[in-house]
Design a protein around this nucleic acid. Structure first.
Length: 182
DNA sequence: ACCCCGATCGTA
DNA sequence: ACGATCGGGGTT
C-alpha cells in the first residue's frame, strides 16, 4: 500500500497552494505527510511554526537579510541553515510572497530502512545529509526533495516551541501523539 | 576586525 | 548542567 512506488508519491506531491496558507495550518497539516529526500522517505512527526517579523523567535524578526531572504519569497521552498556551528535545520516556507514565515521540520519516522524515528531537527538533517546546498530549493517542483500527501490523519499535541528564549508564550509546536505512532 | 549569540545534541 | 563549534549580524 504505502510503497506502491516513488512514482505514486510524485502524484501526491504537495503543491504551492498547500504551503501558501497560514503557517500554523501548514505546520499542523504537515504532520503525517511523507518527506521524500532522494532514497529516504519518512513521515513527519513534529513541526514548529515561525511566523513573520512580529514573532521574536523567527529569524525574519531581524528583517530581510541574505539568510532570511528565502522566507520572504514564495511558499514551498526549503530553508536550511546551520545552528550552533554543527547542526542543520530544515524548514519549508509558507504564506504569501513578502510575508516571511516557515515551518521547522523537527521529526520524521522513516518508512525506509532503517525504520527509525529521527526525533530532532539536527539529527534528522544529519542522518539524511541535508546541508545548505539544499537551501532555497522549490520543493513543489524538485523530483528528489518534496513532500507527498498521506491518507492517514493523526491526532496531534500542541506545546510551546523548543530551544528558544523568546516567544515561549506562543503554542506553535505540534507533534503526533506518540501513542499513535505505528 | 571583533564580539555575541543561537529554532541542537550527546555526554555527565 | 554543560560544552562543542562556527556563521550571521551588529558594532567598532
Amino acid at each position: 500500500m504505502l510503497l506502491a512506488g516513488v512514482k505514486q508519491l510524485h502524484n501526491h506531491k504537495l503543491t504551492r497552494e498547500f504551503f501558501n496558507r497560514s503557517t500554523i495550518q501548514v505546520a499542523q497539516d504537515l504532520l503525517g505527510q511523507y518527506l521524500i529526500f532522494y532514497d529516504q522517505i519518512g513521515y513527519i512527526t513534529e513541526t514548529e511554526a515561525y511566523i513573520g517579523a512580529s514573532d521574536p523567535a523567527c529569524h525574519a524578526a531581524k528583517g530581510r537579510t541574505k539568510r532570511t531572504e528565502v522566507m520572504f519569497g514564495p511558499a514551498g521552498y526549503s530553508y536550511v541553515y546551520l545552528i550552533y556551528g554543527m547542526y542543520h535545520c530544515l524548514n519549508f516556507t509558507t504564506e504569501e510572497e513578502g510575508f516571511p514565515a516557515a515551518v521547522l521540520i523537527r521529526g520524521i519516522k522513516l518508512v525506509t530502512e532503517p525504520k527509525i524515528h529521527l526525533n530532532g531537527p539536527g539529527k534528522l538533517c544529519k542522518f539524511l545529509a541535508i546541508n545548505k546546498s539544499y537551501n532555497q530549493l522549490d520543493i513543489t517542483k524538485n523530483p528528489h526533495f518534496f513532500v507527498a500527501q498521506s491518507e492517514k490523519k493523526y491526532q496531534f499535541i500542541t506545546t510551546p516551541r523548543i530551544g528558544i528564549k523568546v516567544g515561549m508564550e506562543l503554542p506553535w509546536r505540534f507533534y503526533i501523539d506518540p501513542q499513535h505512532l505505528d
